[in-house]
Amino acid sequence: MFDLHGYFPMILQGMILTIEVALLSLLIAIILGLIGALSKLSKSQIARSSANIYTTLIRGIPDLVLMTIIYYGGQIQLNNIGDFFGWDYIDISPFIAGTLTIGFIFGAYMTETFRGGILAVSKGEIEAAHAFGMNRWKVFVHITMPLMVRHSLPGFGNNWMVLSKSTALVSVIGLHDMVYNAGVAGGATRQPFTFYLVVAMLFLVITGVSDFGLRWANRRFSVGVRRA
């Protein structure tokens, strides 16, 4: 049953692409999440409302639908803007569309996670930092951020697990990730079950490794926290 007819390298190639998409979109999600969380907690009404619209919209529309909208619609809008300014054609490849969309979606979830993390930082710590004469930037970098990381880590890990599985959707817009390649191989060999099962196992490997890494990070960032 596990005769892969020489298609395994193709699946592994797809796995590399899957991991690339996942890591890149995680980076985008972290940046968007930080911006979103700070906007939600800022004093500016505009920043708060736009962050709210962002998170509400993203949670309201399925990732698959958002991805198709960005892949096709985004290209058309970009062309219109490009024509207006007289730019050359800029391509939104399936890779860019997939990565951007996933980053964009999980940016919204990260916003909530980071917001919770920042709110969980106790006021006393920040007051103490101010008392030491730190300015707002220094307080954020040296006090709020590291503490926020500790508080958001469980939520962050959860988001990453969901994100890494969402990458499977890029196969629907034609990116040759491991799910797409499993489809090609399964069709050619008439063994779709075998190949999708292999892909499922590879996903379990990714989640397993992540789980291990997250546990390590959790210990690392919780140094000095007393547990009952």
Partner: peptide
């Protein structure tokens, strides 16, 4: 929980 719904 560890594999994508699409693959399932």
């Amino acid at each position: 929980r560890g594999t994508p719904l699409l693959v399932q």
